[in-house]
Every structure is written in C-alpha cells, then in structure tokens.
Design a protein around this nucleic acid. Structure first.
Lengths: 353, 353
DNA sequence: GCAGATTCTGTGAACGCTCACAGACAACTC
DNA sequence: GAGTTGTCTGTGAGCGTTCACAGAATCTGC
C-alpha cells in the first residue's frame, strides 16, 4: 500500500491548507499577505502603530477591514501574559446582596468602564468554600489581570488571600481584617451618617433610633456617624443590629424598636431596603410617616423613590465608586501608584423625614 | 569588550532559566519532570485520564498538587479553539432592565450553572450600536464558545446576527423577528396570563383591566392570555400599553385606566414592577386593594412580597429558566441537538387579589 | 511461541501571536 | 562624503498547550 510511502514524507503544506479550511477566521499572516507587508508590521499596527509608515498603516487597516480580522486573544495572552479580563467577584452573595439595587449599579458601571478599555468582566460568585477555592485557583492561574471584589461581610477570607498580592485587587467598601489589606473605594459612610442624623436633629426629633448593620461593609462607619452626632443621646435601646440589609430585617428591627421605645419619633436605617422594611412595619403599627415617626435611609437606590412616602436618604455616588474602582485597578495593573479613595455623600430630602 | 563574543553564541538555556524566574507559575513540563513522565502523559491526565497507568496517574496528581500547577487556559484555547467562556449579553439595558430583580436571578443562576461546568461568564452590555459592534466582534473573534442573550425588546438586531450561526446562542424569552431565529427558553407566558385572568374572573371581578407591554419580550404572550380568557369582555379602554416594565410606567398606566374606566374593579399588570406602580397610584386615588380593585402581577419577584398589600402574582420558574438556558447552550456547543423550551408557571395567591 | 490486540508512553509539530534583533534606508551633522 | 541618528521593516524564536503518530510493553488466543 502507498500509505507508508506517504507517511515517510511529511507534507506540511497540504496539512496547513486543511487546517486553514476549518479555521475560525483569518490570522495575522493572512492580513500581512493581503496588505503586502510582514507579520511584524501588522502586529505593530495592532498595538500602538509606532514606527509604521503611513502607507503600510493604510494597507494594513484596509486588509483588516476586508478580511474581518480579529486578534486571537488566546495567542496574544500566551505571549503577553495579560488576559485583558478582570474578575468581578461577589463574595458571600446570599441572594440578598445579589438583589441589592446598589450592587446592580456597581456591576453595570464597572462593566461599562472596563468595556471602554476593551477589558472584559468575568463574573464570579463566591458563597461557599468550594467556590472560593475555584476563584482563587482561577485568579492564581493568571486568567485575569485583576480583581474587583464586592464583599458583603467584613473580614472576608478572600481578602487575605488577595492581599498576598497574587494579582491586583480593589474592594468596594472598606474590607475588614488586617490593616495590610487591599485598596478600596467607598463612600464617606461616616460623614453621610452624620449628615442624616444632623438632619433628623434639625427637624426637632428627640428620640432618634438607628437600625444598624455593623457586620456588613460600610455598616460600622454608618453607626459611628450616628453616634458622633448624638453622643450620649444614642441610647442603647434606640439602636438595633441586623445581620443584613434586607426588607425583612428592617421590618423586624422596627418592630423591636417600637416595642422597646414606643415614644420613638425618628429612625435612621443603614440602608434604603432596611428603611423600606421599617416603613412597612410603621404603617402596620398605625404610625404616620413622617408626622409621628421620621424615617431616613441610606444609599438613594431606586427603592427610595418607590416607597410610600418616598425616602429621605443619603446619596452614595455609586457610579463614581464603580468608575474609581476600575480606575484604581487599571493603575495597579499598569504598576502605577494608586491608593484607596473616599467619595462624598449627599443628603437627598424627600417626604419621609 | 566581550559583548560581541557573547552575542555570537546564543545560549538558550540561560534564557530559558531567566524566563522561568519571571514566569507566573509552573508549566506542564515542570509537572512532567517532577512526576517522572512526559508532557503527553500529564496532558492525558489533565483531560480525561484515559490510557494512563495507575502509577503515572498517581505521580502526576501528586506533582500537580505539590507544584500548584494550573493549566494555562490561553495555551489550551490556542490549540483547542475553545475558550471555556460564554458571553452573557444584556441587550438594550436601559437601567431599568438591569435593576429588574428577574434579571438578577437569571444572572446569578446562569453564573452558578456555568461554574459547575468550569465555564466562566463574561458580562457584556449592548445598549448602543457601538457596543453591539463590540459584542459582535468579540463573539466572532472566538473569545467565547456561546452566547446567552437577554433581550429587553423583541426584534433585537443582535438576534439576526447571532442567528447566522457564528456561535451557539440561546435567548431568554422568545425573541421577535424572523422565525429562523435562535432557540430560546421561556416561561409559558400565555398560559400564565390565562391563569391570572381566570383567577380574577373567579373572584367575581367584572371590569378587569390590563397593563400590557407588548414591545417587551414575553409581553405579547401575556396580553394574548388575558384576551383568550376575557374574549369580548377585554374592552379596548381596559387595556393600556406601556413601553417598559417600570414602576413609573405602572403608575401612569393605572392613572389612565382610572380616568378611562372609573368602575374598574381589577387590574392585571404584565409585571410585578408595573403592579407595584399601579398599587401606589390606586392608593393615591383612594381605592382600597383588594376591596375596591384587585391587582394581579406577573413574575413573583422579590417586589411582590414587599408591596403593601403583597401581590398575588404568577410565578415564573426563573431558576429553571437559567438552568435550562445553560443546558441548551452547552448541548449546542457540544453539537448535540437542542431546541427551545417552555416552562410552566404557577399562580401565587397573596393579598392583592 | 507467535501474530494480533490492547494499553501505555514519548515526541514533534502545530496553534497565532509578540517581542527582540538586525538590517535597510533616509535624513541629518560635521 | 563619512559618521550618526532615526525611522521603518522582516525574521526567528518562543509562549504552554493539545493532538496525531509511532514505538514499546503487555496481554490475548491459538
């Protein structure tokens, strides 16, 4: 049989042709050939276009257009060791966090900001230990250039891992744990809480309660702001702690507050969702808002506009938080200096207080 | 100087060593060396582990563990032409859609389902033409193995592009446009709408209005279900169209309905968010719910539990929609046959109707 | 004991790109 | 006109995998 004879002489050309037929798209060599230049020149055009003659530039651009060439990211990554992707890691996402409107804004704005730099966002969940392992392996494996970390609770174990500097990382909100932790971007929670508390005081409220959530990122700061303004008037029974920012927790906390201090005339909830829950509970208890009890929220999320009455709240510039997180991360990736940032908050007056 | 002498003889070995020092992690060759086998054997262990002796298997596994080896996805993708990633494309995401709780559930469940197959989810937004181009180039470039398409409005132009079969794709909800379009997974919207309408009829309601949204995916089906049950009783002035599923649109539609038909005694809103808006407007108009007017929603999203009164609504099995979308997409990627799926809905009775 | 499977292993050649290098040429300076 | 600088170009090597192939070893059944 002629098989052996054929096998004896390898024919790389016909093989290459066969491959080309089943290939996804044109390669850099096809573009080079069509443009009448070399691979190297095409590559230079693709990245930066320096040291390329106008004629060559034009020819390459035309060839790229006519062939519909797209750079093969895998091949590029293989040599540059950059993935042009970052992970958006959602730590401990009980459904709650995921349905938090703040988080949605963050995700959307981060995606947009990254897209402008042609970097793609890979969403990763990290609620179980197994998932954390997966994330860590993924990140360590060099699949992403950086990590945007959205943490629900402070003291996230992933922070420690990330802090070891496997890959640049930025957190949203001040992550708890050792001081050596990773840089973060957050709103000025403490000052925001002060603004709201001062506002309630200015309205003549005497018994101002707080629904706090100190385990959640940003929570301790908001409680501190409330205490800063009220001092000794921040009675113990006026402060109730919840374990998360949820509607149900807000309602339960309000119930407790009403039972402990029936003469309460204002409540500052550490998030709009908590405030919405408090509102529902107040209605059930027959208290009018704001006449009997004023309610203040925090976040200025969509919810604040949809409650009845609409919530007076503290606006966090989440769009800017997202943009700044991306900015800090990109700087870190380029090995430029970058540090944590705190963004100003603003009181938004509506009808609840 | 000795420079020229050095340059004359290339020393690949010291070069390789230098590279190794700055390298991210161990390679397959390092693992092979440590395990005392060849590259090929390690590769076989990594993918499937067939035709590998127990001894070799064990040695490789140990070596992988001690070196902390992770496969370099770029190198692998370069040869397999598979990226192990899929794009989750959010078409026309006016903020609204993004803040839709349904969408959050979908995103979360898809991410989880994909993670189980070690496939990562790349989030892409596609609200402008420029962004659609980007998405298309990205997808065409072979960066992803498939696309999960979440479309707000029917007749999305991306669908047509995707339908040309660049890459496997699955839509959530029936995409409008040519019949030749891509496969989809959706709830049985028509039947769900029938369930709700029948429920309102069974409660003795005589003037049943509808807040419909026929431009949005699923919208036409829900309107059809309402008409199926009511027949000629579905008066023109009892149906108002909105352009999206938003709180504000729901409130505006309710206002219109009250003005046109003051004797209205029930409303079926095509989404919970619309129903929440209607609820707010009814309260403002002094109508009691459900005593004066019954309100039915659709989705059974988180919102339905948080309105006052809580909404009677139609539950869509979104977790299953997400799981099925991923399942269909994976089949398509493996070139197995797979077709569109319709999932059953369920009436959830609460207090609003 | 030997042909034929069957299991197991190592090796070379891609995959498509970037990057360093060297060479060609043009434009200056003295 | 020779040297120096700067711009522009092509080429070879290598990134870390997988895959096809071929060869070695072991097991069948007669």
């Amino acid at each position: 049989m002629s098989q052996n004879a054929d096998a004896a002489q390898p024919h790389p050309k016909s093989r290459g042709a066969a491959r080309r037929a089943m290939r996804r798209g044109p390669t850099i060599d096809d573009v080079a050939e069509l443009a009448g230049v070399s691979r190297g020149t095409v590559s230079r055009v693709l990245n930066g276009a320096r040291y390329v003659s106008p004629a060559a530039l034009k020819a390459v651009e035309r060839a790229v257009r006519t062939t519909g060439y797209t750079v093969n990211q895998s091949a590029r990554s293989l040599v540059t060791k950059q993935s042009n992707a970052v992970a958006f890691v959602l730590s401990e996402p009980q459904e709650r966090l995921f349905e938090d409107p703040n988080f949605s804004v963050l995700l959307r704005c981060c995606t947009q900001a990254l897209a402008e730099h042609d970097i793609s966002l890979i969403l990763m969940l990290e609620s179980s230990d197994a998932e954390r392992d997966r994330v860590l392996r993924y990140v360590r494996g060099g699949h992403v250039d950086g990590v945007l970390l959205i943490s629900a609770h402070s003291g996230d174990p992933l922070v420690a891992d990330l802090a070891r500097g496997v890959v640049p990382a930025v957190a949203c909100g001040r992550p708890g744990g050792p001081e050596s932790a990773i840089p973060y971007v957050a709103a000025e929670d403490t000052e925001g809480a002060r603004q709201m508390t001062r506002h309630l005081v200015a309205q003549g409220r005497r018994r101002i309660g707080m629904i706090a959530c100190p385990q959640v990122v940003g929570g301790p700061e908001r409680l501190r702001g409330y205490r800063d303004v009220l001092g000794r008037r921040a009675l113990k029974r006026l402060v109730v702690h919840t374990s998360d920012y949820s509607f149900a927790a807000g309602a339960a906390a309000m119930r407790e507050l009403l039972a402990e201090s029936p003469d309460i005339d204002a409540v500052f909830a550490a998030s709009d969702l908590l405030a919405a829950g408090a509102l529902a509970e107040l209605r059930r208890a027959g208290r009018r808002v704001p006449d009997d009890v004023a309610v203040g929220g925090f976040d200025d999320s969509r919810i604040a506009r949809e409650t009845d009455p609409p919530l007076t709240t503290i606006r966090q510039p989440l769009e800017r938080v997202a943009a700044d997180m991306v900015d800090v991360l990109l700087r870190l990736i380029r090995r430029e200096p970058a540090s944590s940032r705190l963004l100003p908050t603003e009181l938004v007056r509506r009808e609840s207080a």
